[in-house]
Computed example of a mutant assay.
Amino acid sequence: MPIFEYKCSDCDNEFEELVFDRDECPPCPKCQSANTGKLMSAVRSKVGGFAPDTGGDSGSNAAAPSAPSGCSGCSGGDCSSCG
């Protein structure tokens, strides 16, 4: 069941509502007006594995968290002295 964001045209209240019918516009919980409309929401998702928060840049080449490695010159990242 999706949660949608709405805005009341009468009192400018923004609210979220769990709805069963995606075309339904629920009344405003603040003023009870039926004059509400759906807002566009930003979507953020993560697919598989670890991905550090890079401020939304999904194309980042950020290193994975440090892991033990045979290289004593770095913290497990990708460096030229690891061989």
Rank of each mutant, 00 (worst) to 15 (best):
P2C: 07
P2N: 05
P2S: 08
P2Y: 11
F4L: 13
Y6Q: 02
Y6L: 03
C8H: 05
C8G: 06
C8P: 09
D10I: 07
D10V: 14
C11H: 05
D12L: 10
D12M: 07
N13Q: 10
E14Y: 09
F15E: 06
F15M: 05
E16P: 01
E16A: 15
L18P: 01
F20N: 10
D23P: 00
D23V: 03
E24Y: 15
C25F: 06
C25Q: 00
P26A: 00
P26Q: 02
P27D: 05
C28A: 13
N35G: 02
T36I: 08
G37M: 04
G37H: 15
K38E: 12
L39G: 03
L39S: 05
S41I: 08
S45K: 10
V47H: 11
G48Q: 11
G48S: 14
G49P: 01
G49Q: 06
F50P: 03
A51C: 03
A51L: 09
A51I: 10
P52T: 04
D53S: 10
G56T: 10
S58D: 13
S58C: 11
S58E: 12
S58K: 14
S60P: 03
N61S: 13
N61K: 07
A63I: 00
A64L: 13
A64E: 13
A64P: 11
A64N: 13
P65A: 03
A67E: 11
A67P: 00
A67T: 14
P68G: 14
S69Q: 00
S69R: 00
C71M: 04
C71H: 03
G73R: 02
G73E: 01
G73K: 08
S75P: 02
G77N: 04
G77S: 14
D78R: 05
S80A: 05
S80G: 00
C82L: 04
C82S: 04
